[in-house]
Design a protein around this nucleic acid. Structure first.
Length: 249
DNA sequence: AATCACGGCAACCGCGTTCCC
DNA sequence: CGGGAACGCGGTTGCCGTGAT
């Protein structure tokens, strides 16, 4: 059933590539072309995993690669693309001929990040750095509801803010602001809440509490993908392409 | 000269997706 | 259709070179 294993785990060499290995891989790719990476090590006479061969070729040996540090204009392009695409290095690299995702990622982490921070720009949001509280300018969903958990006479205003500055749902942080005694509810089981938000477990008690206080149809919220696909499309094509320049504000 | 600390980068790891049987 | 392996991607690690002490 299924495919053959990509490589024999035993006897597979790891670590830095030698010039001899490089030469073998280059010779093989040049003469045979890129086929299935699973077969490459065996056919090329290398004691390496196919995955390792692919990485070595795409990141280092490919003849169309530019070598050396990124120049000013390339850096600026990376910054612009990162602002639109986030940490999707392969997408960024696809728009920069001769550069690899690994190279761009490394350059971003070691050089560009620091430069932006020096300039007072948040490398994640690309917004000017401010002395910020837990909330930031990237908050895009705010759900506000009057809520009276323990005493009907108390008019408690609770705001749940989902911070979408992270690129994936798993990185999403949830901040709950409260005016008074909701602490007992929301501190009750943060782990369960997080797990629920990530779709890993059943809703904790507090979610039922929220549901029962007339939130606008909590069960009919769009899925994460539904909420963000349009945004990714905008990022891929650029906000300008959609005539949504006003969103920048 | 020896040692330590740090930065840069190549390579590995782990996970989600795609593909094949 | 389901199981399992390959593929591709982003995050992380670890080695190596260099500068500081």
């Amino acid at each position: 059933m299924g495919r053959q294993p990509c490589c024999d785990k035993l006897g597979v060499k790891k670590g830095p590539w030698t010039t001899e290995e490089d030469q073998k891989l280059i010779n093989f790719i040049i003469t045979k072309g890129q086929c299935c990476w699973r077969a490459v090590p065996k056919l090329a006479g290398l004691r390496r995993c196919g995955k390792s061969c692919r990485l070595r070729w795409t990141n280092y040996l490919r003849p169309d690669l530019k070598r050396g540090l990124l120049n000013e204009s390339e850096e600026q392009l990376v910054i612009d693309l990162h602002a639109r695409l986030g940490n999707r290095w392969s997408k960024i690299a696809a728009r920069m001929p001769g550069r690899t995702d690994n190279e761009i990622k490394n350059h971003w982490n070691t050089h560009i990040k620091k430069k932006l921070l020096k300039k007072g720009i948040d490398p994640i949001t690309h917004e000017p750095l401010v002395k910020e509280t837990k909330t930031s300018s990237s908050e895009v969903i705010k759900l506000t509801k009057n809520h009276s958990p323990s005493s009907p006479s108390e008019n408690t205003n609770t705001t749940i803010i989902e911070n979408l500055s992270s690129s994936t749902p798993s990185e999403t942080s949830l901040t709950i602001h409260q005016d008074n005694n909701l602490e007992t509810i929301f501190n009750e089981d943060d782990e369960k809440l997080l797990g629920y938000l990530l779709g890993e477990n059943e809703p904790p008690l507090m979610i039922d509490t929220i549901r029962t206080c007339e939130l606008p149809n909590f069960n009919n919220f769009y899925s994460w993908d539904d909420c963000t696909n349009w945004l990714l499309d905008c990022q891929d094509f650029g906000v300008h392409d959609f005539g949504l320049d006003s969103f920048k504000d």
